[in-house]
Amino acid sequence: MTRFAMVIDTRTCIGCGDCVVACKTENNVPEGLNRDWVVEATSGTYPDLKTEFRSERCNHCSNPTCVTLCPTGASHLWKDTNIVLVEPEKCTGCKACIAACPYDARLVMHPDGYIDKCTFCHHRVEKGMDPACVSSCPTRCMHFGSLDDPSSEVSKLLKTREYKVLSPETGNEPNVYYLL
């Protein structure tokens, strides 16, 4: 199984939202809905402050509870990877997967009735390209690749830099990493 990961450097992320717009256009995300979003976390008291920006999306968890709780198999893993996809033709729109995601990342109830979500742009990954959000980011703070390949940029970054994932306590083993 190939484990794909996204590694985002919070030192250079400026919270500009280009990743969000790029996803919308690349993937024709229905108006008003988002597959990714940006969070600004500020702590401290003026003028002693710290701000972190995080571009967030589905974590393509190694233990994806959205997949385990889907009653029809519509939520599934793409090929032999951790990329979590939804097959519209199997989706009943029961919304169990929405409730099953601790990251509230199953955002898009497509107007046509099925669940739509971040695909890690597998249609681009398949062609050896980075996901649309990654390749649009003006600060180049986003990186994408396989964790199985020790020479990939993402592997190297995780080896050399401090990082975190969101709420590791969920046990879902998320694969979007934030460099600190």
Partner: peptide, 15 residues
């Protein structure tokens, strides 16, 4: 119409 429209998987972007 929309419900039926949803029956078929949309082609992937760029196909």
């Amino acid at each position: 119409a929309l419900m039926l429209g949803g029956c078929v998987s949309k082609p992937l972007p760029g196909t």
